[in-house]
Amino acid sequence: MDLPFIKVENISYSYKGDGGVGVPVIKELSLEIREGEFVAVLGHNGSGKSTLAKLLNMIFSPQSGKIYIDGKDITAPDMTDDDVFALRKTVGMVFQNPDNQLVATIVEDDVAFGPENLSVPSEEIRKRVDEALRAVGMTKYAHHEPHRLSGGQKQRVAIAGIIAMLPKCIIFDESTAMLDPIGRREVMQTIKMLNEKMGITVIMITHYMDEAAMAGRIVVLDEGRIALDGKPSEVFEREELLRSMGLDVPQCAAIIHRLREAGVALKGDCTTPEKCAELIGRALGGEGRDV
């Protein structure tokens, strides 16, 4: 059987509400993600993004439907504890608040936490910690106390803690939401590096359109269902639909959209300001001119 890396089939999930009545949050959702993809997940507050992430990590199990990850049916009733650990090793998760993910008082101890829980031999842990810290550019801070680091640095330590478990996929649940612009840039660069250089499948939940534009694919969630799924340029074309779901469109995509509506012929995709300037420049007649 040739399964994609992640295959979600018709899953539904509801939280226990008051008086035992379930509040449906994920509704018959299906999704496929191939190995090595960089997928951004958009959706307004409460659309079920975090819940979906936690379902992929078996923090919750869906009430109906199936989830296959890396060739294994993680919704099978015969999942053992070891299977769950193996899954969480394969699919790591980085959250929003960096403070609530760091468990140790020294950076390198924190990075070692995951491998230690997985009973990795100590020489191997040493190696993985060094490599993970190098990958996120935090080697210099190995002996620092996390609470003295900046938000972006803490978040990179949290990422190193996941890398040290050697995951195939990492889910970022609004991991840049609490950071200042510098921290955001640091973390975004790290995420891109993970995907491009280390071949890790990235699922990035975010609120920022410019971050989503960096992904290879965007999935938009609305009320527990997938409303849009496609390349950034395709998704951002649907400006009205996005706005009706309480989402924005990156400024450059909005400009191109409006220009096209006004009858200006613009060919090609546009998700970044540079690309946007290039397209407009070309439309103004300057063949490949520097803009």
Partner: peptide, 12 residues
């Protein structure tokens, strides 16, 4: 939140 993050890092 910490409890969930620890679970995600295979804490048992």
């Amino acid at each position: 939140e910490l409890a969930v993050a620890m679970e995600c890092r295979c804490y048992h």
